[in-house]
Simulated scan of single mutants.
Amino acid sequence: MEEVKSLVSPEQMSTMVDWVSQFGLKLIAAIVVFFIGKWLARRISNLLKRGMQRAETDPTLIGFVGNIAYFGLLTMVVIAAVGQLGVQTTSFIAVLGAAGLAIGLALQGSLANFAAGVLMIIFRPFKAGDYIEAAGTAGSVEEVQLFTTTLKTPDNKIVIIPNAQVTSDTITNYSARDTRRLDLVFGVGYGDDLDKVKRVIWEVLNEESRLLKDPEPVVAVLNLGESSVDFAVRPWVNSADYWGVYFDLQEKMKKRFDQEGISIPFPQRDLHVYQHAS
């Protein structure tokens, strides 16, 4: 100990103690600012989310705005904490901006996903709970995050799609309207009575209580095919009843055709054999 004291003069020891004490206080202040600021950022973000929930805002918008607010406030907290250490925040912000530019160039795909997420929030082509088809995948929208959109498929799989792929392709929103039209096609034989077929189809439709009266269903000959006369059957239903009615009408129509003796032909070809005298 005496050897160490001999190596450091009293003036140097005093300077070191002052420096350590000053830096220690600054470090403690920076840590306090960071943790308190982080807590406040989380608190403000949660308050913002709850306020939007009380206003019955779209859940997709709530999550997106909450994340933006939190990370924006957290960035300000980090800058304030660094300022407590004596670092010039002006130059720090300039360095941060230059680093952000370099990172942005390296992460162009991520920034494209972020921009696409912002556009989806602004224009809102769909909301949480809607059943959509986008980027070759169909499912219910679970959440729109900063960079990705999460879909739940009908077989309960979770599919995470980059936002840029969602906006760069066609988006089909099956839940955008309260009603949908069923497009059904039933083929009957050429030897069947078309008037009878139309009557039977109308009877089956009238027995289905989930069909809407307005708009009125359409029943018409669609096509004279190679093996069948095809009828277009186009009733309207509530969007929530779409698949239930779709499956039930297929089954009911087949059973009723069987009862009425109406044939549903399968593809076939007539083969003519000609014999020639030798």
Rank of each mutant, 00 (worst) to 15 (best):
D183K: 11
L85M: 11
N173A: 04
D178R: 15
V78L: 13
V141I: 13
T167I: 15
I62H: 02
D130Y: 05
L101E: 02
Y174K: 09
T172Q: 06
A80R: 05
I93P: 01
Y174L: 13
L111C: 09
L146W: 05
D178N: 15
N156C: 10
T149L: 10
G97C: 14
Q145R: 14
G83M: 06
T149G: 02
Q53T: 12
A80F: 12
G72E: 07
T75Y: 11
P59T: 01
V166C: 01
L74R: 07
Q84T: 08
I160S: 07
F71N: 15
F126V: 06
A81L: 04
P162I: 03
K152L: 13
L119G: 07
G100L: 12
Y174V: 06
P162L: 01
K157H: 14
T89C: 09
V141K: 07
G63Y: 05
K157W: 06
S91W: 15
L146I: 10
T179W: 05
G72M: 12
F126R: 08
E56D: 15
I68Q: 08
K127W: 02
A69Q: 00
V77M: 09
T179M: 12
G104P: 00
E142T: 12
D58P: 02
T57W: 10
I68R: 03
L74T: 15
G86P: 03
S140N: 14
A80I: 07
Y174C: 06
I122R: 09
E143K: 14
V87S: 02
P59N: 00
A69V: 11
G66W: 02
V166I: 12
